[in-house]
Design a protein around this nucleic acid. Structure first.
Length: 822
RNA sequence: GCCCGGAUGGCGGAAUUGGCAGACGCGGAGGCCUCAAAAGCCUUUACUCGAGAGGGUGUGUGGGUUCGAGUCCCACUCCGGGCACCA
């Protein structure tokens, strides 16, 4: 398309100006009101694609808008530069991940600047910077000292594709790796964990106070998964000194316990199993422990029958309510690492137990009266208790209380809260990550690397290959070291940290990258924290956001965050993703639409405007055959604005007439609309409002009667300001042309609507007859109910529509509407 | 299975509190300008009956509340997302 100006020249000029003049640099002691706007720490994947463009368009709009509102806006940028793609690329190329990563960083940075997004580049950080590594390790050691980091032997998720262990959070529901898609297997390994479960309750309750999208809050809550219940003992029938401890949320159903189940990993399984049952028990244990998690967890759906998923152990335990012995089964549907790894089974009220009982021919006793018409099965709803001794007649809530008291007194029970959340496994058997700064000494065990020896850096002279082992594990120069305590030979830890540890605290480094002796000075960082507006993709709804919340709480508690809030992100906005042919646009899918082709034609401004205009920012967007035409429409809008700015084809008249009054009123109404829309993340309607104003202004200016110069200029200046955060280049250029002596439009105060201009002198009142619109009248906004009724009944169209009938009722809602009911 | 969203013209979408459905844009149709085209500009564009004036219908389906429902309530269909043996 041909443009009335040189779009590339103008955009490059302003991008250079913002960069050279440090227009968006802010100091920590800036006297203005502070505002921290942050887009999520990006992985440097190379040239930006439309998903980035959308993200940074929203983020940049916030930065520029808040700046025009008079605030000191902290807008930092950096790179989540450790991670697997770089390592895998390096393996493929037989090179080191660093040059690959840095080339991709350079590309992404260039892309972001070409979009016109502005940052305080003095604050740039990246995870593989030795300085950043040093502080990441300092934090790790602080967690270690405080007992928040620990090493444990655990059955962990191993991804054969990524050749590393994964956190629970990185394993998808179908048992595959979220990154490579490989089927995750279980391995018994000694690994590092962060004690995130210590914060389960705070992470859960804290969610309520955050201004986040409801669905993200719900996802976090579900992930943490709090459940309240009771833990108590089921004594073994053979030997009452030994007991099977179980956890339940339904102690009230105790009289319905007809069997118990232990997980295949349960320590008492061996004791419970009789010789006669050993073979079938072993079969269950073997299948459950040797197969992958996916087979175990989805086998019910996959058709592996329940009869093959559990077996009788031969052992019995005593139900403390009935004093009767019930059989103990082993089954893979009971998890070893949740609760006590054993359950009381209540087939009458629990669906899983019912299904299992049906297959294994176990008795079903209902302890809650199901409603009338209830079909066969487990009933988990409320109702009066039956078959339940002293609990009979009580509803579920009351029976829970009574049953709990009973268990506390008779079965060594105690109320207990369990969480689904597990501790965060942070070890990764990978090279391109932050090394875990400890050494293993024969005498002293785990010894932290002394502060003065940080950072522990990975050596450069490594050969990246697909052996399945991190080069660190075979690099003698790296892992051979001495114990910091006794100087004896020791072995250095060769695992690195999960890259989510890097993004756990980067927002703090951004707030204060200037204090050389600390990761961040909490007194400085607290000037900006918490982040006022965090912007990112919905894909981080659980992992990153949960980990970052944990980090800030933990940093507070280990003494590194004095004075800082405990929640990092006050407001979160999750933008929708861009789909092409039905699937998410991403580099890994290879279905990218590069923005580069648009810069010489519609420009960054046109592309930005499109992303704002295309639809609600939170919604997913489909990139279709029609999209290019919409993008051109956005550029066309800019061109029309440009021509009107230069008074192309305009009639100027002297004095002010009614048309001027109308334009001025529309101008001020648009200020109010756009401001409101920007505040409520309704960018598509904000753009639409500006398009409407341009239509109004353009029509008035080109009419026979024309427009007053001052009306036109006022309206154009307002439009330039309102448009500035959306299309920053052209507005800066035009503003400078007309106002060479004034500061840049971006440093100009955001316009405020004159309330007097918003007052309407006439409004359209609709007259309905039986709810159907029959007439529209222009009335004063102050019209009374009686006047409105009278005016409506006097209207000729209305009289015609009434056909002489007498109204049964007249509902008047002045000045909007009168409804005449016959 | 459970929990969230969502469904509005040919298309993307708008309607902030129950009060003019379809703003704005894309696409389409017709026109002006031009030797012609591009660009630009103007008119028109929910469906339907009607020559016209004008009428009827219409926000996934069915019911309800209300003078009045895209908006509130009940039931359902379809689509998208999250969780999915957590006792």
């Amino acid at each position: 398309m041909s443009r009335p100006f040189d779009v590339v020249e103008i955009e490059e000029k302003w991008q250079a100006r913002w960069l050279d003049e440090g227009t968006y640099d802010v100091d920590n002691d800036d006297p203005r009101e502070r505002y921290y706007a942050l887009t999520m720490y990006p992985y440097p994947s190379g040239t930006a694609h439309q998903g980035h463009v959308r993200n940074y368009t929203f983020g940049d709009l916030v930065v520029r808008y808040q700046t025009m509102l008079g605030k000191a806006v902290l807008s930092p940028y950096g790179f989540d530069s450790f991670g697997l793609p770089a390592e895998n690329a390096a393996i493929k190329a037989g090179s080191h991940p660093r040059p690959y990563t840095e080339a991709r960083m350079h590309e992404l940075k260039t892309s972001v600047r070409r979009l016109g997004a502005v940052y305080d580049w003095r604050r740039e950080v990246y995870s593989h910077d030795p300085e950043y590594i040093k502080w990441s390790q300092t934090i790790f050691l602080a967690f270690l000292k405080a007992g928040l980091a620990y090493r444990a032997d655990a059955r962990v998720n191993w991804c054969p594709g990524c050749l590393t262990v994964l956190a629970n959070e990185q394993v998808l529901a179908d048992g595959t790796c979220e990154r490579s898609g490989d089927l995750v297997v279980r391995r018994q390994l000694e690994q590092w964990f962060f004690r995130i479960t210590a914060y389960a309750e705070e992470l859960l309750t804290g969610v309520d106070d955050l201004e986040w999208p409801e669905r993200v809050k719900t996802m976090q809550k579900n992930w943490i998964g709090r459940s309240e219940g009771v833990e108590f003992d089921l004594p073994l029938a053979e030997d009452r000194a030994v007991a099977l401890r179980v956890f339940t949320t339904r102690p009230d159903t105790g009289y319905g316990v007809t069997y118990a189940v232990v997980a295949p990993e349960h320590p008492l399984l061996e004791t419970l199993t009789t010789d006669a049952q050993r073979a079938s028990v072993d079969e269950i244990v073997t299948r459950a422990t040797a197969t992958s998690e996916i087979e175990r967890t989805t086998s019910s759906a996959e058709g592996i029958g329940l009869e093959k998923r559990g077996a009788f152990t031969g052992g019995y335990v005593v139900n403390p309510f009935t004093n009767e012995s019930v059989p103990v089964y082993v089954a893979d549907y009971v998890l070893g690492n949740y609760g006590t790894g054993a359950i009381m089974a209540v087939p009458g009220e629990d669906e899983r137990d019912f299904d299992f009982a049906s297959v294994h021919g176990l008795p079903v006793v209902h302890t809650v009266q199901p409603p009338e018409g209830f079909e066969d099965g487990a009933y988990s709803g409320d109702g009066a208790h039956i078959n339940s001794g002293f609990l009979d007649g009580l509803d579920v809530a009351a029976a829970k209380v009574a049953a709990t008291t009973y268990l506390v007194e008779h079965a060594r029970g105690n109320p207990k809260v369990n969480y689904r959340l597990r501790d965060w496994l942070v070890s990764r058997q990978r090279f391109w990550g932050c090394p875990i700064p400890v050494v293993y000494c024969e005498t002293h065990g785990i010894v932290p690397v002394p502060e003065e020896d940080l950072p522990v850096l990975a050596p450069d002279d490594v050969v990246m290959n697909a052996s399945g082992q991190s080069p660190l594990a075979t690099h003698e120069g790296f892992f051979n070291t001495v114990c910091p305590i006794d100087g004896e030979p020791a072995r250095r830890e060769t695992d690195t940290m999960d890259t989510f540890t890097d993004s756990g605290w980067y927002y703090l480094r951004f707030a204060d990258p200037f204090t050389p002796t600390m990761a961040f000075d909490p007194a400085q960082a607290s000037k900006w924290m918490p982040v006022n507006q965090y912007i990112g993709g919905i894909e981080h709804a659980i992992l990153h956001l949960l980990y970052a919340r944990f980090y800030l709480k933990a940093l507070n508690d280990v003494g590194m965050g004095a004075g800082l809030p405990r929640e990092p992100f006050q407001r979160l906005f999750s933008q929708g993703m861009i789909r092409l042919d039905g699937s998410k646009m991403s580099k890994s899918k290879g279905n990218l639409i590069a923005p580069e082709a648009y810069y010489p034609t519609v420009g960054a401004d046109g592309l930005r405007l499109f992303h704002l205009f295309a639809g609600p920012p939170a919604d997913d967007m489909d990139w279709t055959d029609q999209t290019d035409e919409v993008i051109e429409g956005c550029a066309r809008f800019i061109d029309r604005f440009y021509r009107l700015w230069h008074h192309y084809d305009v009639n100027i008249h002297g004095g002010l007439d009614d048309a001027d009054a109308h334009v001025r009123q529309e101008t001020h109404r648009t200020i109010a609309r756009v401001t409101n829309d920007l505040n409520r993340w309704s960018y598509n309607t904000a753009v639409a409002a500006l398009m409407e104003l341009l239509n109004t202004l353009s029509r008035a200016a080109r009419s026979e009667t024309g427009i007053a110069a001052e009306t036109l200029e006022e309206s154009l200046d307002v439009m330039a300001k309102l448009l500035a955060p959306m299309a920053p280049h052209i507005t800066a250029e035009l503003w400078e042309e007309r106002h060479p002596d004034l500061p840049s439009v971006h440093l100009t105060a955001w316009p405020v609507a004159d309330p007097a201009m918003l007052v309407e002198t006439e409004v359209t009142m609709v007259v309905q007859v039986n709810g159907k619109v029959k007439a529209r009248l222009l009335v004063a906004p102050s019209i009374s109910e009686d006047e409105a009724t009278a005016a409506a009944l006097a209207d000729l169209d209305v009289i015609d529509a009434l056909k002489g009938a007498t109204p049964a009722r007249v509902v008047a809602r002045p000045p909007r509407m009168v409804n005449i009911v016959l």
